[in-house]
Amino acid sequence: MIEVSETIVLDHSREDVFEFLDDPHNHHQITPSLERVENIERLDNGGKRIDHTFKIGGIKLDGELVQTVHEPPERMVFDMRGQLEGEIRLDIKETEAGTEVTYSAGYDLPGNIIERLARPFVEKYNERELTTTLENLKTRLDSAEQPA
C-alpha cells in the first residue's frame, strides 16, 4: 500500500477551507493528477459520490470516490473504488498559527502500474502531488479574498 500525508497552514477559517474542499470541482482545479470529476451525487451523510480519473505516470485510472465521512468543518474521508482502491482523508483544524489542513492518502496500485513504475517513484510522485495540491489550495483561497 502507498501511504502519503502532507500538511499546510492557511490564513483562512476552517469553515472557508472546508467549504472550498467540499466542492469536487475545486479538487479538480487544485489536484494536478485529477483529470476528470463528473457525475457528482449528494449522499445522505452530506458527502458526495464522484466519478473520477487520476493520471499517474501517464496512465489513466478511472474510479469513483465515495465520501464516507462528512463532518463540517473538520473532516472528510473518501473511499477510492475502481482501478485505485484506498482512502483519502482531509483533516482541518484550528491552530494558533492558522488553519491546519492535513491531506492523507493510502491506496493500492493495480498490478500493471507496479510493473511499469517503481514504488519509490510513485511515493515521491504522490508526495509532490499532495504538496502541490495543498499549495494550490492556498493560492485559490488567497486569490478568492482579493477584490475583483
Rank of each mutant, 00 (worst) to 15 (best):
V66F: 05
L117V: 10
T68L: 09
Q29R: 14
I30P: 03
L117K: 07
L10H: 08
E85W: 06
E38L: 06
Y125V: 01
E145G: 09
M76F: 07
D16G: 04
S143I: 09
Q67H: 08
E129Q: 15
T139N: 06
E15C: 02
I92K: 05
L137D: 05
L34N: 01
T131E: 15
L21Y: 05
D62I: 00
V37T: 04
D79I: 03
E135Q: 14
E100W: 09
R89C: 10
N136D: 08
Y125L: 11
D142E: 15
T31K: 00
T139E: 12
N45T: 12
E100S: 15
H28V: 00
M80L: 15
D23V: 11
S143E: 15
Q29P: 00
A105W: 02
V66S: 12
F54G: 05
V9K: 13
I50P: 00
G47T: 10
S104Y: 11
A144L: 13
H12K: 15
L10P: 09
I114E: 14
T102L: 01
R119N: 07
L109T: 13
A144S: 15
E85I: 15
Q83C: 05
D108E: 14
V4L: 07
T102D: 01
G46Y: 12
N26I: 03
D22T: 04
H28M: 05
R128P: 00
I59L: 14
K48W: 06
G58P: 00
V69L: 13
E115V: 13
T53R: 10
I56W: 05
K55Q: 13
D108W: 02
A105F: 04
Q67P: 01
M76S: 05
D44R: 14
L141Q: 07
V101Q: 02
R140A: 15
Y103W: 08
K138G: 08
E96C: 01
L65I: 02
N45D: 10
K60P: 11
F18Q: 02
V77P: 08
K60A: 13
D44F: 09
H25N: 11
T95Y: 07
P110G: 07
R89S: 14
V37N: 00
D79Y: 05
E85V: 15
N126Y: 05
